[in-house]
Design a protein around this nucleic acid. Sequence first.
DNA 1: AACGAGGGCAACCGCCGTCAC
DNA 2: AGTGACGGCGGTTGCCCTCGT
Length: 409
Amino acid sequence: MSITSESDEKMKPKNSVGSPAVDDANSGGNSQLKKGPWTSAEDAILVEYVMKHGEGNWNAVQKHSGLARCGKSCRLRWANHLRPNLKKGAFSPEEEQLIIELHAKMGNKWARMAAELPGRTDNEIKNYWNTRIKRRQRAGLPIYPPDISQSLIDNHQPDNTNAFSSCGTDSLYPPDFSPANIFEFRAIEFKKLQFNQHFYQKDTLLSPGFHSYPNGPFQYPPKRLRGPDSSFPSGSCRYQNGTTVQIAHSFMYNSNSSSPSEPGWAMKLELPSLQNQAGSWGPTSPPLPSLESVDTSIQTIPSEPRNSGLLDAVLHESNTVRNSNYASEWGGYGNQTNSPLCHSLSSVFSKGTPISSNSVDELESLETIQGCKVKESNTLAPIKYCDTAETTNKMVFTRPDLMLASNFL
DNA sequence: AACGAGGGCAACCGCCGTCAC
DNA sequence: AGTGACGGCGGTTGCCCTCGT
């Protein structure tokens, strides 16, 4: 981690991304601007600057603080590592589930997905997804659970009677990408997504193991714990040297994990990068079945994936699943909607369209969930933090973000 | 113990949208 | 309307670390 002082030395950039060389046009051609990993000293300068002047106007950071970083770099550093409401650590199963779900709906809209995951950054989610699909690609597995693939297809049926049938069936894509029904769609979709523990035991690296696969067992690569360990208490981070740093959370809240600005959703569907790669669907992908039962607008989908959109990919994937035995790979999707996060998500998703299912009706008070303070969108969000005496007594001066997160200022 | 391969992650790049002038 | 500055976003890159051999 470049933010630890002991790592500053070895994190000295060498070339390219880590090059201390001249910055590019983004920096206005200022040859004094530094690139590469940030040092703790730089972090402290940036934190101090933001405390004084607030966020924004990033290009002024260099002028006012003397920090030899371009504005973009400052913004990124702040957003991804220094801002106080960041949730450090591995993704929880609930978060993983949500990412999968959101990706099925949004495609590679990392920033929008991050808005749904309090304390998480788009970069984090993007990295997670990319590594996840790499794993699944290697395993020859579909990138989405069959339920998700199928739900996208179902919502595309000409005779479907779901909430979106009124949106017309000419559209190639599910109609969630409109301001009017986004929440409705999400609420319904969320109810459809019945994951079970089995899925997570298989899909997440947290529980590596053998899998039944048509061509034989597959073993996930072993989990390599980097950074926070899911077994650690929430709010603590384990860094690469194995030490555990307790975070003082008194200052940690979700101030601006804003909900997506729903109006004006000009969705352009984007394909996960994996899906852009023809032939990357695994060697055992069977040919597509007849698509007669599928909307005519998608009957022209060729038997091989093509770079034409998320739904195409999902359709292919779903058909692949349906026509092979490895649908069982995903197991049965039991109900995980009892988790606090799922509850809160249902609450968010159901904005404007109350969900009547038991899982939602029986929502326990969000205030009572693991001590979380929960508030929809723009304000507080469900994050579980721990405050310990140890936490509040220790000041980690090599972690400006932690210092900022504490009350030291 | 040494080495290579692969994973994970931080940071950069380039494009695009918005806004002020 | 045109232009430049700025910020946001998604894609990509390269380094460090871990693990297997």
